[in-house]
């Protein structure tokens, strides 16, 4: 699993289920893992290879008919690998080598979940040469 090449324009998909590859809903190119392994990660430590992929986007998914236990571990893992609050987004922006974005996000309260529009407005106040392009991208994504 350490050799996974991150996709640039699509989120990586972590598929949590007991049937793994054979399940008809399994998205193509998904990384498959059973719910028990995820529970172990949550109890001990989430693997570094997975955390390293967070800033590129990881969608944690499970089959529609998954039971409550599977849904619970999916929800808990999602909160770790796909966070939306500013404190975690700040870390992700730094990991992504986007310091101007990190500074903009650091202006929000840690528990706030900023929208693209809010991030764009914050970026617009920065005088860094990289800020105008990031501001445009944030506004564009707000309207995608």
């Amino acid at each position: 699993m350490n050799t996974i090449v991150p996709r640039m324009d699509e989120p990586a998909v972590l598929w949590v289920g007991d049937d793994l590859q054979s399940h008809p809903e399994t998205p193509p190119q998904a990384i498959c893992i059973d719910a028990a392994s995820v529970a172990t990660w949550l109890a001990t430590e989430v693997p570094a290879w997975l955390l390293a992929m967070r800033s590129r986007g990881i969608a944690v998914m499970c089959p529609t008919e998954a039971g409550p236990a599977t849904r619970t571990v999916v929800r808990e893992l999602r909160a770790i690998v796909a966070p939306r609050h500013a404190a975690a987004l700040f870390e992700l922006a730094e990991e992504a080598d986007l310091p101007v974005l990190a500074i903009a996000i650091s202006q929000f309260p840690p528990s706030h979940t900023p929208s693209f529009a809010e991030i764009a407005a914050m970026l617009a106040q920065d005088s860094d040469p990289a800020a105008p392009t990031l501001t445009r991208l944030a506004w564009a994504l707000e309207h995608l």
């Binding site: 699509e10 986007g57 969608a59 796909a82 987004l89 986007l98 944030a138």
Partner: peptide, 15 residues
Amino acid sequence: RLGRLHPVAAMRASA
């Protein structure tokens, strides 16, 4: 899809 996960992923990919 990236934007729905979190804004940094979409910002990184688009940049």
